[in-house]
């Protein structure tokens, strides 16, 4: 169901960015009003969500009041209540905590595996590269939902497992991007120079080459977070996502979607929160791409 992330080809290789390049990029990013707004939005959201348990006046998201189940939005409950009489506004905020956490941790897992895998494959090259990329091919060809189901069947459905499962299915594209970057960088003069100075392979790879792949990695990372959030929501739709009493936007949306004809607010508010967040991530990702990729930048002609 997921819409793909940018294919590797669309992220154009950044030549070794000098310090001025980064500040250039920063300047360009700040000029992109939508990206800045998205950044502020995400920052504010992350802060509110992180502090949700300690916010004064916010109802407890797990307190049930069965007699007042499923009431429409009102002054008392801005987003209404769900079937168990829990305050939906509070649940959406707490759900955001989980969803953002899932998105970030899942992305981190994919980042670590993907960068390491791709960098090693690209740098070592030859048979090792072939083998490592064949592993990526195999995993690419496996329907990821099947992998996730099995991971969740094997290991109890804890939040940690969910992070790992989502990260594990997301690192493939990252590995391909990083490998492509490393391949194009490893014969450049600064690498040769480091080698001539007697730096070890590991040092060359992780001190000199990987930092130079940062541009595309940052862009892709920004786009992975919403993808992971979506994946989690998709799993929740199949009943395999975050488990109660925790709720993510995914579980809220999929529960709400099942009662849409009678209690549409149950899907509209979490859906809105989720869509806006994904939108913000996509804006930010676009902005970063424009900023870090001088060729495709908006003010180029």
């Amino acid at each position: 169901m997921s819409i793909g992330i940018a294919p590797p080809g669309s992220v154009v290789a950044a030549p070794r960015p000098a310090r001025s390049l980064w500040s250039d990029a920063w300047r360009r990013l700040r000029r992109n009003r939508m990206a800045v707004a998205a950044g502020w939005f995400l920052g504010a959201l992350a802060l509110t969500a992180a502090l949700a348990p300690w916010l004064p006046g916010l109802a407890d998201p797990t307190t049930q009041d069965l007699a007042k189940g499923a009431t429409a939005p009102s002054l008392q409950h801005a987003f209404g209540t769900d079937e168990l009489g829990r305050d939906l506004f509070s649940r959406v905020l707490h759900g955001g905590r989980i969803s953002l956490l899932v998105g970030l941790v899942g992305t981190l897992v994919s980042l670590i595996i993907g960068v390491t895998w791709g960098a090693i494959a690209g740098y070592v090259g030859g048979k090792v590269d072939d083998l490592m990329m064949r592993v990526v091919d195999v995993l690419y060809a496996l329907p990821y939902i099947f992998l996730v189901i099995l991971l969740l069947v094997f290991f109890s459905k804890s939040l940690v497992m969910l992070f790992v499962a989502l990260g594990l299915v997301q690192w493939l594209t990252m590995a391909r991007i990083v490998r492509g970057q490393v391949l194009s960088l490893k014969h450049q003069t600064f690498v040769e120079a480091a080698r001539a100075l007697g730096a070890s392979d590991a040092a060359i790879l992780f001190r000199h080459i990987v930092p130079n792949t940062l541009g595309p990695v940052i862009v892709y990372t920004t786009l992975t977070v919403p993808a992971v959030i979506l994946q989690e929501a998709f799993l929740s739709f199949l009943g395999l996502g975050v488990q109660p009493p925790n709720a993510s936007w995914g579980t809220l949306v999929s529960d709400g979607a099942r009662a849409i004809a009678l209690f549409p607010w149950l899907v509209v508010f979490p859906g809105l929160a989720m869509s806006l967040t994904l939108l913000a991530f996509n804006f930010l990702g676009d902005g970063l791409r424009d900023a870090l990729d001088p060729k495709g930048r908006r003010d180029s002609h």
Partner: peptide, 8 residues
């Protein structure tokens, strides 16, 4: 609460 899919 432990939620498992049907087979498990």
């Amino acid at each position: 609460l432990a939620n498992q899919e049907w087979g498990s």
